[in-house]
């Protein structure tokens, strides 16, 4: 999703088989109270009314990790270097994020319990 290009026809949501998209039917943000501005994550764009949104897999964290890896001489992003926000707060460690194409990834290791992976 590129939020600032979305005009909000909701066609993508109609077609989404998993219905993971959510539409901002109303302005759910309070943009006027100054104190709230401090509360917000400056790395994440605030979606306005009339825009479709979905999980970005914390694209800002992926970008940060990518920049670090580029600085280290264009190495690959290490397994576990990117931790999504939901993963970081999950007390049961049910969410793992990583590269499915990497055989060494934690995602590919056999797990004792079946978990839902997002990747």
């Amino acid at each position: 999703m590129v939020y600032n290009r979305c005009v909000g026809t909701r066609y993508c949501s109609n077609n989404c088989p998993y219905k993971v998209r959510r539409f901002n039917f109303l302005l759910y943000q309070d943009w006027n109270t100054p104190q709230y501005k401090l509360m917000r994550n400056p790395e994440v764009s605030i979606r306005s009314r009339g825009v479709m949104e979905k999980c970005t897999y914390c694209t800002q964290r992926i970008s940060a990790a990518r920049i670090e890896s580029q600085k280290d001489g264009a190495r690959k992003i290490r397994d576990g270097e990117v931790v999504t926000a939901c993963q970081s707060v999950c007390p049961t460690d049910a969410i793992i994020f990583g590269d499915m194409g990497d055989p060494e990834s934690r995602l590919r290791r056999p797990r004792k319990i079946s978990v839902i992976t997002i990747c």
Partner: peptide, 12 residues
């Protein structure tokens, strides 16, 4: 906004 209508998820 569109929220004044009855449209919802999944009836976009």
């Amino acid at each position: 906004g569109i929220g004044v209508w009855g449209n919802n998820q999944p009836v976009g």
